[in-house]
Amino acid sequence: MNYFGILVGIATLLIIGLGFPLVIRGERTFGYLCWPYMMGLGILIILASLFIQNNWLCVIVAVIGATFVWGSTELKEQAVRAELGWFPFNADKVKVPFTEIIKKWKAPHL
């Protein structure tokens, strides 16, 4: 019996659960235009996991990275939820660098 996979699956569920406050807080603080930063950070974390030799640590780090990448695709919808009044709306968001350029890109939504 190989319990590694099932334990990793449960750990993934718990880590992805942290994605909810990440998306909610991230959108409220920085707005959905922070998506390239969240996605880039996620990709960097996954790349960093390639250099970790311990399997457990490697997998946990990579799944944290995947949570950031997935979260970046949820920010746009979260922004609309806040505008609709389903979540608190923050009118005074911190503007991320290159906001005007990012605005011209299509925000990912899966």
């Binding site: 019996m1 190989n2 590694f4 996979g5 099932i6 990793v8 699956g9 449960i10 569920l13």
Partner: peptide, 26 residues
């Protein structure tokens, strides 16, 4: 998927199926 993840000796397959299975259960 979780059962297959438990019985396989391949660590990569066990990992992928373990995650897929928990996701399907959720």
């Amino acid at each position: 998927a979780e059962y297959w993840s438990l019985i396989t000796d391949n660590l990569s397959l066990s990992t992928a199926l373990g995650i897929l299975g928990i996701t399907l259960l959720f």
